[in-house]
């Protein structure tokens, strides 16, 4: 099986550790993963702000980078959702039938990390060790756009040493919302503050989620409040071992 990593533009530029964790984790599970250098961005920032024409080059880059792979794995529910649910719209708008066909071939083979581990590899115990208390925030797009359900929790429950604490109102949006965080920054921060309060109520050391963009927002609120809670991507906890802790 030829597997490609779609690292996402946010992780590439801001959170390279998450991409490195995915590579380590998949290697440990016996999956050799490629990083097609032609990849850029899934196009979601443009699509979700209404700039559909501007998303076309990103979607072209996406299909150019990932065509021919059996599976595209990404540590982002949001970007997987974009590939699976928005690329068709962008391709249709471009009027390029070749792009429409290429999207139809690649988008169904795009998996969010927990989907890939559970559904494609069939593992829930990935041999991780992380001796900390953790609370999990299910991000909206992984939950409602992709329907990853309890897959991330099933993975976390198998991590040795990890104590999983329930997050109150877990399924409520954190308020990130892409450009919403800037265009409606007041409302975004109001939502983020409530999410941060719920995180602190759990007493967990670490907040984990499957999207670094949401974590950047919640972590930004937690950090400004000097809360002492660390935010980590799911991939980094799953990659963590005694020898190489996250």
């Amino acid at each position: 099986m030829r597997v490609a990593l779609m690292v996402t533009c946010v992780n590439d530029a801001m959170f390279p550790g998450t991409g490195q964790a995915v590579v380590r984790l998949l290697r440990r599970l016996g999956v050799e993963v490629d990083f097609p250098a032609a990849q850029t961005c899934c196009g979601q920032p443009m699509v979700n702000t209404g700039y559909l024409d501007e998303a076309v080059p990103a979607v072209r880059s996406f299909v150019r980078a990932f065509e021919g792979y059996d599976a595209v794995v990404t540590p982002s529910g949001s970007c997987a959702g974009s590939a699976r649910h928005q690329h068709r719209l962008v391709a249709q708008r471009s009027g390029d039938t070749g792009l429409v066909a290429a999207v139809a071939a690649t988008s169904p083979r795009t998996y969010e990390l927990s989907e890939f581990l559970i559904d494609v590899l069939g593992v829930s115990d990935v041999g991780a060790y992380f001796p900390h208390s953790v609370t999990y925030h299910p991000t909206c797009h992984s939950l409602r756009m992709l329907g990853v359900g309890d897959r991330p929790r099933r993975l976390l429950e198998q991590v040795r040493g990890l104590r999983l604490l329930d997050l109150p109102k877990a399924e409520e949006c954190c308020g990130f919302g892409g450009t919403f965080a800037l265009k409606n920054s007041d409302t975004s921060v109001a939502m983020g503050s409530d999410k941060a309060r719920h995180v602190r109520e759990t007493g967990a050391e670490v907040l984990v989620a499957g999207d670094n963009s949401c974590l950047m927002h919640i972590g930004g609120v937690l950090g400004r409040g000097r809360s002492g809670v660390r935010v980590l991507h799911l991939a980094e906890i799953l990659a963590s071992t005694e020898e190489q802790p996250a």
Partner: peptide, 10 residues
Amino acid sequence: LPYASTLCGA
């Protein structure tokens, strides 16, 4: 108005 949402899907 169309921007008054995080697109959370609830």
